[in-house]
Amino acid sequence: MSGIETVASGIGALSGYVYPEVLVETAWVAEHLNTSAVRLIEADEDVLLYEIGHIPGAVKLNWHVDVQDKITRDFIDQQGFEQLMSRWGITNTTTVVFYGDRNNWYACYAFWLFTLYGHKRLKIMNGGRLKWEAERREMTRDVPHFECTSYTAQQADETIRAFHGTVWPGLRNSERRLIDVRSPQEYSGELLHMQEYPQEGAQRGGHIPGARNIPWSVALNADATFKCVEELRQIYLGQDITPDKDVITYCRIGERSALTWFVLAKLLGFPRVRNYDGSWTEWGNMVRAPIEK
Score class of each variant (00 low, 15 high):
M1R: 05
E5A: 13
S9N: 15
I11A: 03
L14D: 14
E25H: 11
E25V: 11
A30K: 12
H32V: 03
L33G: 09
V38W: 01
E42A: 13
E45P: 00
E45F: 12
D46T: 08
L49E: 07
I52E: 15
N62A: 12
W63K: 14
Q68G: 01
R73L: 14
D74W: 11
E82F: 11
E82A: 13
M85W: 09
G89M: 09
D101V: 13
W105N: 07
Y109Q: 10
F111Q: 05
T115L: 05
T115S: 15
N126H: 07
W132H: 04
E135I: 01
R136D: 12
R137H: 10
E138V: 14
R141I: 10
H145F: 11
H145P: 00
E147Q: 14
T149P: 05
S150A: 13
D157Y: 08
E158H: 04
A162N: 04
F163T: 15
H164I: 13
S174Q: 06
R177A: 15
Y187E: 02
G189Q: 01
L192C: 04
P198L: 08
Q199P: 00
E200V: 00
A211V: 02
W216G: 00
S217C: 01
N221R: 14
N221Q: 14
C228P: 03
L232S: 05
Y236N: 07
L237D: 08
P243I: 07
T249C: 15
Y250D: 07
R252V: 01
F262C: 05
K266R: 15
G269H: 12
G278V: 09
S279C: 08
